[in-house]
């Protein structure tokens, strides 16, 4: 079984100070720590588990700058066989639709039975690229997959996670796109040694021209949405911040608990 996994290198922002850049249309990336998108890490692991079960090989693809090689190497160290990076100045400012289109051009000519993406990215969070890619390639898809039950006779039976703990089981014809939900597996750990071992594997790099694309099919001209401005969410009333020494704060929390929680 030939499996393709789309992976993105994203900045870790949950714990970082975000600064809006000079253009006012993006955030400052300088100083942020980057890693593989959390959902994509689960997708790579799932692909490798499927390969171990059904045979075949895993190819990882990332649209991104040279630094995305690190992300691709991490996936190679986990057990992917081939890595492809898509890059071109014309790809800058692509929205979810344009990203899906660029990925489709790279994937189109490859052999594949299954394409895995993450449910969403930690940065843009479109939750869009996987199903869009499926439509462009004219193949079925299932999103928010939290279990791959069986793959047999050219079909896959998978669980889609709905709200409130309910799953929906769907049966798909292959090839298909599945968007993988976090928690579906336990991604293996990659050591520095492991990354070193794959350092020599060549990463194939493709640009706009090599993907037979025109400049107006990517970037802002090829996008369906354009960012006008980035701003910090209005805080509204916001929380009352408790200040003081640890002891003083603890005293305040205790009085809140007594008053609101009925703790005696």
């Amino acid at each position: 079984m030939e499996i393709i996994v789309c992976i993105k290198r994203v900045p870790e922002t949950a714990d970082a100070d975000i600064v809006i850049d000079k253009t006012g249309r993006d955030i400052e990336r300088e100083g942020l720590v980057f890693d593989i998108n959390e959902w994509d890490n689960y997708a790579v692991e799932e692909a490798i588990l499927l390969k171990e079960k059904y045979g075949g090989s895993v190819t990882v693809i990332s649209l991104g700058p040279e630094e995305a090689n690190e992300t691709l190497r991490k996936a190679l160290a986990m057990g992917a066989y081939k890595a492809i990076r898509l890059t071109d100045p014309a790809f800058q400012d692509s929205d979810g639709y344009a990203i899906a289109r660029i990925l489709s051009r790279a994937i189109g000519p490859l052999p594949y039975d299954l394409i895995l993406t993450g449910v969403q990215t930690e940065d843009d969070g479109y939750g869009q690229v996987g199903p869009t890619l499926a439509e462009i390639l004219q193949i079925p898809h299932a999103s928010i997959v939290n279990k791959i039950e069986a793959i047999e006779n050219g079909r896959a039976r998978v669980h889609r996670e709905l709200e409130g703990g309910l799953d929906e089981v769907v049966d798909l014809e292959l090839p298909a796109v599945l968007t993988i939900q976090s928690g579906i597996n336990e991604p293996r750990y990659v050591s520095i040694m492991g990354i070193r071992r794959v350092a020599k594997i060549e990463i194939k790099v493709l640009d706009l021209h090599e993907l037979s694309m025109k400049p107006d099919e990517a970037g802002e001209p090829g996008s369906m949405t354009v960012v006008e401005r980035v701003f910090f969410p209005p805080t509204g009333e916001g929380a009352q911040i408790l200040e003081g020494t640890a002891d003083e704060i603890a005293d305040k929390v205790i009085s809140i608990l007594k008053e609101k929680g009925g703790v005696a």
Binding site: Y97, A100, Y126, P131, S143, E161, M224, T225
Partner: peptide, 20 residues
């Protein structure tokens, strides 16, 4: 879960701009 499975592919089919 319903809209995330439907909207992106529908938009691509209709060639309609989509903001998610």
């Amino acid at each position: 879960a319903f809209g995330m499975d439907l909207a992106p592919s529908l938009a691509a089919l209709l060639n309609a701009p989509l903001a998610t």
